[in-house]
């Protein structure tokens, strides 16, 4: 009985793996099709679409734009998120629960509503739609994830180390920079990669806060609305490979970190 269960369940698991992977594999394959027309069967193959991606100025500039936005918004998220985490972890003060609730709020708001709220607020603050507005929206949206990751790491920091540093004459800032911060580095690295990917993949906020220059997901969306073509497959595949590689690397990184602590 148990054996039969096991076989059925493993079939379900592998079917799920197929559901998760097959669409992406097909998408990559379709980028090699030697025709303008999307669809199976694929009769002849070409590398033209993939080489075309690297010659297309529009795609390259969208890619660079997305990476720049991801990097800058991540820097802001990390600085702010770490600061909030240091305030919230292991400290009890009046209103802490309220501050924590407000901290995680951006992560709980459904995508479209968060994009609309940012759009209205950007207008209110006088931020023009464009790079600055996207960076700001991504940064705010990603702060909760940084706070949660850093708080988790901070909770395992031995208090005695800080006390020892203070006993030896370090003031709180120096104790933070020399003891707490180096201890947090793995968590901060993990959170950074997570933020980079969230920002790079984000569509809805980039779409509503963007100016005329598209980020990569917005460019793919715009191209899709005017029709499917293997060119889009090639662009999407480049984005896919990049995010998947960084994601896997981050996964290994965080696992090593968990082993250390």
């Amino acid at each position: 009985m148990n054996r039969k269960n096991r076989i059925i369940l493993s079939c379900v698991y592998w079917a799920f793996v197929a559901y998760v992977f097959v669409p992406l594999i097909l998408m990559v394959l379709m980028g090699f099709k030697d025709s303008n027309f999307i669809g199976f069967p694929i009769r002849s193959y070409t590398l033209e679409w993939y080489t075309g991606v690297f010659d297309d100025a529009e795609t390259i500039s969208a890619f660079v734009y997305s990476v720049a936005i991801a990097v800058l918004s991540t820097v802001i998220s990390i600085l702010v998120g770490t600061w909030i985490a240091v305030l919230l972890e292991g400290r009890s003060f009046w209103g802490r629960a309220v501050v924590f609730g407000m901290t995680v709020l951006p992560a709980l708001i459904p995508g479209i509503i968060s994009a609309i709220a940012f759009r209205i607020y950007a207008r209110y603050l006088g931020i023009e739609p464009g790079m600055g507005a996207i960076i700001w929206a991504h940064a705010v949206h990603n702060v909760p994830f940084v706070v949660l990751v850093v708080m988790a790491r901070l909770s395992t920091l031995p208090k005695s180390q800080i006390e020892a540093a203070r006993d030896l004459g370090a003031d709180p800032l120096i104790a933070f920079l020399r003891i707490t911060f180096p201890y947090l580095v793995p968590a901060i690295m993990g959170a950074s990669i997570f933020c980079l990917l969230l920002s790079f993949d984000d569509f809805v906020r980039s779409f509503f806060l963007g100016g005329y220059e598209p980020t990569l997901p917005v460019l793919i969306f715009a191209k899709l609305k005017s029709g499917m073509s293997p060119e889009i497959n090639a662009i999407a595949t480049v984005a896919l490979v990049l995010t998947a590689v960084i994601g896997v690397w981050a996964e290994r990184f965080t696992r090593r970190m968990n082993k250390d602590s």
Binding site: F16, V17, V20, F21, V22, P23, L24, L26, M27, M30, F37, I38, G39, F40, P41, L197, F200, D201, D202, F203, P217, I220, F221, L224, M228, I232, N233, A236, A239, L240, T243, A244, I246, G247, V248, E251
Partner: peptide, 30 residues
């Protein structure tokens, strides 16, 4: 981890992958 990899890929790219899977000339119909 095997299941996590595809989830690093963005919303638009994965939506497009589903379009290719389910289209009239897509893999399922084939």
């Amino acid at each position: 981890l095997l299941l996590l990899i595809p989830f690093w890929v963005g919303e638009i790219v994965r939506t497009y992958a589903i379009m290719i899977l389910l289209g009239n000339t897509g893999a399922v119909n084939l």
